[in-house]
Design a protein around this nucleic acid. Structure first.
Length: 531
RNA sequence: GGGGCGUUAGCUCAGUCGGUUAGAGCAAAGGACUCAUAAUCCUUCGGUCGUGGGUUCAAGCCCCACACGCCCUACCA
């Protein structure tokens, strides 16, 4: 690993969410994963910026707004305030910025970007006629057009939405994406980690090798969008508009200094929108003469009952259904730990409840509880002093160093699940260490007091390391633990601790007064286990 | 039709460059212990690695075919 250089820029994004959707655990999953990565880097001292937001243009939003009797902007405002900002609170997201595609900064940036592409000859006018699906916001290829049934008998309908398609003819402006095919392939070749994981990269390469076509980037059939700067009878295609949020939010066209400091970004996306981010978006940036993203990482789907959770099929689970019972920390921990980041993963209430109980309550929560209880009982609630170190103590200390470094390496590779598994070795080792060292036996003899102090000092130092290492994943529980350790007064705020030094011993001075610990993860009686 | 991925213990999943008796957690059974959230620790049980071929001294891993499942297929391919 390279030495961590101070103020290394780390700009990470989620996709911006389509306001018309109802937030479900899939959206929350993307947010949490990005948040964990952002918190890890921020706590490590990197110059971190975490951007999320909403996508608010397009025909579908115009239609639902009209159906609800309000202007589209008002409709979007309502959804942002009632659904999307609350989602971020529900799962404790630490975003630095929230962009809406209706923000003036975005609309102005998009116009500048488009004008530049037009001036530089990357955009031309063309015309076409095709079947368009309002639900998909796009013209459909033959493979996605099927014969309607029932009420739509005899009509052509969208294979996804099963609703009739509309035959549209438009004069459109096209982006000469085909011109960037070779440069894109060279990019994937030269930077193998540009698209991750490898399965996603393979898919992208195969797709581009089949040949790229130019992309229609304007629409005239409705007006809820950003006007094309040189032809106000057109609005910008929603995807072209949406992708640009990543640069307009950080000062493109308005604040060059800020833009230079942040860009390029690391994009975390669902695998459904990989192509937009790994093909179209880099091509757009190349055309504008801007650096391409640092990484595009595509994560998998959450499977519920073995099937993909779907936005349009209403199989979504609302995040607060989980957090109301288990809390936001458990939500965050569960999805980050149980699923290999980058692959599909199964969600079940049984698995969630089992992991909550076994890993959070019995593993980590109980560890904190037993150590602090013994500090209170045997040392009057202060951090004990360590005496001579034995092999067992040394093993714990070395393990803390090892897991810190290994976890950081895993985070660099986006292997969030592996980072947590690595850190959890310390939880398990500490539980075993305490059982073997039997501090309750040592406490019976005054001569053993120094040894008792060493054991509990080691265990407490382990808790301190765990609080720091797990703070990006379970911010609330670790904050409670931090307070109980008296660490705020002794060494400062938890989120200011240098994460990459978490494994270094001796940070908490002996004699530091401790506070009673609130139960970190209370036992929960669920339907699943109480039958 | 084309492309990508997956199939390993009852469940959820690891398994790097092909290399000894295929690993973990949970669940299940037994034991130890009492500081702790009836928690912890130890032990045990548990697998024809989807199917059939092939390459190799050696295959969960590489090649071919098949089965099942999932995803993508960009307006005009």
């Amino acid at each position: 690993m390279p030495e961590s250089s101070e103020n290394k820029s780390f700009f990470i994004t989620t996709p911006i969410f389509y306001v018309n959707d109802a937030p479900h655990i899939g959206h929350a999953y993307t947010e949490v994963a990005t948040d964990v990565l952002a918190r890890w880097h921020r706590q490590s001292g990197d110059d971190t910026w975490f951007l999320t937001g909403t996508d608010e243009h397009g025909q579908k939003i115009l239609r639902t707004a009209t159906a609800n009797g309000v202007a589209p902007k008002e409709w979007a405002d309502r959804l942002v305030e009632s659904a999307w900002r609350p989602l971020l609170n529900t799962i404790n997201i630490s975003n630095d910025d929230f962009i809406r595609t209706t923000d003036a900064r975005h609309e102005e940036g998009v116009a500048k970007f488009l004008q530049k592409l037009y001036d530089d000859g990357h955009v031309y006018a063309g015309e076409f006629e095709a079947l368009y699906c309002v639900g998909c916001e796009e013209f459909k290829p033959k493979s996605e057009i099927v014969d309607g049934t029932g009420a739509f008998e005899g009509e052509k309908v969208c294979a996804i939405h099963s609703k009739p398609l509309e035959l549209l003819q438009e004069k459109n402006y096209f982006f000469k994406m085909s011109a960037f095919q070779d440069r894109l392939l060279a990019l994937y070749e030269e930077r193998p980690d540009f698209v991750q994981p490898a399965s996603a990269r393979n898919e992208v390469i195969a797709f581009v090798q089949q040949g790229l076509e130019d992309l229609s980037i304007s629409r005239t059939s409705f007006d809820w969008g950003i006007p094309i700067p040189w032809d106000s009878s057109h609005v910008t295609y929603v995807w072209f508009d949406a992708l640009l949020n990543y640069v307009t939010a950080t000062g493109y066209g308005s604040n060059d200094e800020q833009f230079a400091r942040r860009w390029p970004a690391t994009h975390i996306v669902g695998k459904d929108i990989l192509r937009f981010h790994a093909v179209i978006w880099p091509a757009m940036l190349m055309a504008a003469g801007l650096p391409v993203p640092e990484h595009v990482f595509a994560h998998g789907w959450l499977l519920v009952g073995g099937e993909k959770m779907s936005k349009s099929k209403l199989t979504g689970i609302a995040p607060n259904e989980i957090t109301d019972t288990f809390g936001s920390d458990a939500f965050r921990y569960y999805f980050m730990r149980a699923i290999s980041f980058g692959q599909d993963g199964s969600f079940s209430w049984e698995d969630l409840a089992a992991r909550y109980q076994a890993e959070l309550a019995n593993g980590f929560g109980n560890l904190a509880s037993r150590v602090l209880a013994m500090n209170a009982k045997y040392f009057g609630s202060v951090q004990p002093a360590a005496a001579e170190e034995t092999a067992a103590d040394q093993a714990i200390r070395e393990l803390a160093l090892k897991v810190t470094s290994a976890a950081d390496t895993h985070i660099e590779r986006f292997a969030i699940h592996e980072a947590i598994a690595e850190i959890w070795q310390l939880v398990d080792a500490l539980n075993g260490y305490i059982t073997e060292q039997e501090p309750w036996v040592l406490a019976k003899s005054e001569e053993q007091k120094p040894r008792l102090g060493t054991v509990l000092a080691t265990a407490t130092e382990g808790l301190r390391a765990l609080a720091e290492l797990l703070h990006p994943v379970v911010p609330e529980a670790t904050a409670k633990l931090w307070a109980a350790l008296g660490a705020d007064e002794a060494i400062g705020a938890l989120d200011e601790q240098p994460l990459r030094d978490a494994g270094t011993w001796g940070r908490l001075p002996a004699g530091t007064p401790q506070q009673p610990l609130a139960v970190l993860f209370p036992r929960i009686e669920t339907d699943a286990e109480s039958k």
